[in-house]
């Protein structure tokens, strides 16, 4: 292939005019030839300013939930040697929820650059099943090392009007419960809190019904919807 026709192939791949076979061929060649990969990247950069001319759109409602569901079921590629923890991914994703779309792209970028492949597999999360007074499982609580806590309600609890679900934990078994936050929408949610020690096995988690806005005393006052002690998951 002449240099000139190679340049044309590169341009047509970047524009989207090349056939699938040509795209695959060029990708293979670029994978084996850093100089060619650099040419391909330069060609992409030439047209990249056009990406910025698209009108930015707001993220539709429910977008992150749908994405999160898909990541939960997404297959992890078998090849990489490192362990990718889905729970950690979900927690990460949830932290980003609500961030501007561009910021998410930037976060993805950071996740890439920060060396995804070098990342030490995260310590196992603590998982707690909360049971109600009848012994039925009402919620699943997954806590990351930094106390990002994902609460998945397993059934729709009856929350009287003027009441809200509040999530608590006892970092120190002998100490007072600490509020992790409110499930203001009455739905599954991920809560973040700073300044607590990493959750440990046997740590107590519970959800209580509190007056709207949360417990006025900052301690549980209402009936317990579900309570349980944390377990180290076997991963």
């Amino acid at each position: 292939m002449t240099e000139r026709s190679l340049d044309m192939l590169i341009d047509e791949v970047v524009l989207g005019l090349a056939s699938d076979a040509d795209c695959a061929r060029l990708e293979r060649m670029a994978a084996a030839d850093p100089a060619l990969a650099a040419r391909l990247e330069r060609a992409r950069q030439r047209f990249a300013p056009l990406d910025d001319t698209a009108t930015p759109l707001p993220v539709p409602e429910g977008f992150w939930d749908r994405l999160s569901d898909r990541l939960d079921t997404a297959q992890i590629p078998p090849a990489p040697a490192e362990v990718v923890d889905l729970g950690e991914m979900r927690a990460r994703l949830a932290r980003w929820r609500g961030a501007a779309f561009g910021a998410v792209a930037a976060s993805l970028l950071m996740a890439c650059i920060a060396g995804w492949s070098l990342m030490v597999p995260p310590a196992p999360l603590v998982v707690t099943v909360l049971l109600d007074a009848d012994g039925d499982a009402v919620a699943l609580v997954e806590s990351a090392r930094d106390n990002t806590t994902r609460i998945t309600l397993l059934e729709q609890p009856e929350v009287p009007s003027g009441r809200v679900m509040q999530v608590w934990t006892k970092p120190d078994d002998a100490g007072p419960p600490v509020s992790l936050g409110l499930l203001a929408d009455g739905r599954s949610e991920t809560l973040t809190i700073r300044g607590l020690t990493a959750p440990a096995s046997q740590q107590l988690y519970e959800i209580t019904l509190e007056p709207a806005g949360g417990s006025p005393t900052n301690l549980p006052t209402g009936p317990i919807l579900g309570v349980g002690r944390a377990n180290d998951p076997v991963i």
Partner: peptide, 20 residues
């Protein structure tokens, strides 16, 4: 985004920008 998650390990910053 799902593909990006899955392929994050393949991304090589030496070969170009993450944005690209």
């Amino acid at each position: 985004l799902v593909l990006i998650w899955r392929r994050a390990a393949q991304f090589d910053p030496g070969r170009g920008s993450a944005r690209g």
